[in-house]
């Protein structure tokens, strides 16, 4: 039986077209719809399935960020997590919170909570870093199973199928370990209304990075954030013949 720690991040909803702030300091987040990072939903789902299969006995959801981070923790609880930990980081400091800080926090919590598995999403769709799981594993000196599309527990090990560039790869990791979830690991469930109501009564502990002895001084300075170069709008062409002619003109085909 294992205890599973799952990291969840509140990000701008994946369907929102983001806007860069005019002063180039970041993107507009006020009044913009946020939700749980899609990869983290997959991570929670996997942990809850482990519990349902009696492979895990407790699922702990963790999120770092301002007060609103509790929204995604409640979602995680409604999906089936048993308890939640909110590591509160004030909005101002949250702007410069980096995977190195989050992974130190998660590593500390994994030890405090005596977790056997840490499951994280492969990347957050806002900073697109793809670092936190690997760094958490590095800080704990635990094995890492990144970009997992299938996980099976076997005695003191996990068998993991990973999505790699040329196909798939099978590895076997000793527990405790850190897993990062890829898109195809599972299909996350929706939280039902009764479960959302029940989630409000589940325990949610609040702490700060300081309580865990983690320094969150930024290591990377954001110089500026800009819009990407705009592509020139092209033309709608009438038929395949015109397309062939255009491709020949451009030298793409002989």
């Amino acid at each position: 039986m294992a205890r599973v720690l799952v990291g969840v991040k509140r990000v701008i909803d994946y369907a929102v077209k983001i806007r860069v702030k005019p002063d180039k300091t970041g993107v507009v987040t006020d009044g913009v719809k946020h939700s749980m990072n899609p990869f983290d939903e997959i991570a929670i789902e996997e942990a809850v399935r482990m519990k349902e299969q009696k492979v895990a006995n407790e699922v702990i959801a963790v999120s770092c960020g301002p007060q609103q981070a509790q929204d995604v923790l409640r979602t995680a609880l409604a999906m089936g997590a048993d308890k939640a930990i909110h590591v509160e980081v004030p909005a101002k400091e949250y702007e410069t919170l980096q995977p190195i800080h989050v992974s130190k926090i998660l590593a500390k919590l994994a030890q405090n909570e005596k977790a056997d598995l840490v499951i994280l999403g492969k990347q957050a769709i806002d900073d697109d870093c793809n670092q936190t799981a690997q760094m958490t594993a590095g800080f704990l000196n635990w094995p890492q199973a990144t970009f997992a599309s299938k996980v099976e527990k076997q005695d003191g090990h996990i068998l993991v199928k990973r999505e790699i560039d040329g196909g798939l790869e099978n590895i076997k990791c000793k527990l405790p370990a850190v897993i990062s979830a890829d898109l195809r690991l599972n299909e996350p469930r929706y939280a039902t209304l009764p479960n959302i109501m029940k989630a409000k009564k589940k325990p949610l502990t609040k702490m700060t990075p300081k309580d865990l002895g983690v320094d969150i001084t930024p290591r990377i300075k954001i110089v500026k954030v800009e819009d990407p170069p705009v592509r020139q709008a092209g033309a709608i062409i009438p038929d395949v013949d015109t397309l062939v002619t255009k491709l020949k003109e451009k030298g793409h085909v002989a």
């Binding site: 980096q98 995977p99 190195i100 992974s103 697109d128 870093c129 793809n130 670092q131 936190t132 690997q134 760094m135 958490t136 594993a137 590095g138 800080f139 890492q144 990144t146 970009f147 990973r162 999505e163 790699i164 560039d165 290591r219 990377i220």
Partner: peptide, 23 residues
Amino acid sequence: ASAFGKALLPRIAATLDVSPVSD
């Protein structure tokens, strides 16, 4: 920044206690 580099470099960075820059 392939599957290989993405899996390996953040782990190295953590061991060296530095913040990596991805992709």
